[in-house]
Design a protein around this nucleic acid. Structure first.
Lengths: 106, 106
DNA sequence: TGATATTCTCTAATTTATAGAAGAAAGCCA
DNA sequence: TGGCTTTCTTCTATAAATTAGAGAATATCA
């Protein structure tokens, strides 16, 4: 079994979470929101491409919308293989994190 | 906040889990056992060194034992800072993985 | 002492992560 | 229509992390 890299995991989960609305910008916003830190453009698109290569996500070109202009979006969707890999990842993590103590408020 | 890399997370958790018995060889065995795959020596020691540098673990030289010879062990212990970082990591992961479906047996 | 066992140090090669400039593609409006 | 603005992506260079394993250190055993 091959573990996903950190960034692959985070991006892949974001795609899953964003359902039909996953594209570069929304993925980046979502990750920033959760981690509370800045992420460069490349930090998103590079692993995104790799996930496509690996067959864990598919991608398709979005159509122009009625909103103020701009290049059209490239959407991403998680594949069933992607879901399987995530499920395996969680398996490993559950074992690793088992019994790790809850934070005590002090 | 800076996320730990994948290998840093896995190694750090292993040290925590192995309590007083964490050194290169046991960490490597433990990770192999959980992931079911081969890990080179370097894949363990390199992130181990980095964790020391970052102050997330401390290290001390073990004494020779009565067992069949060999170089003495270098033990590792997680620091309180290491525990804090892990707690933060889990926080992020819980959000990311929230609602991810359980695997259905088929 | 020489053979054998155990563990670690070190470094090179590959893969990932990170940053952001530049450009493509769309709507807006004189 | 043509230029301006907005939105989003492509591309590429650099830094950091991962991975592999040869080789050396250090201990016991006979």
């Amino acid at each position: 079994m091959k573990l996903l890299s950190r960034q692959e995991e985070v991006v892949l989960l974001s795609i899953w979470k964003l359902k039909g609305n996953a594209y570069g910008v929304t993925v980046r916003e979502y990750i920033s929101e959760i981690t509370g830190k800045y992420w460069s453009i490349g930090a998103i698109y590079v692993p995104l491409d790799r996930l496509v290569e690996k067959g864990l996500v598919t991608t398709y070109q979005g159509l122009p919308t009625k909103r103020r202009g701009g290049r059209s979006k490239r959407f991403y969707e998680i594949t069933s293989e992607g879901m399987e890999v995530l499920a395996e990842m969680r398996q490993v993590q559950r074992i690793l994190w088992k019994d790790f103590p809850e934070v005590t408020a002090d």
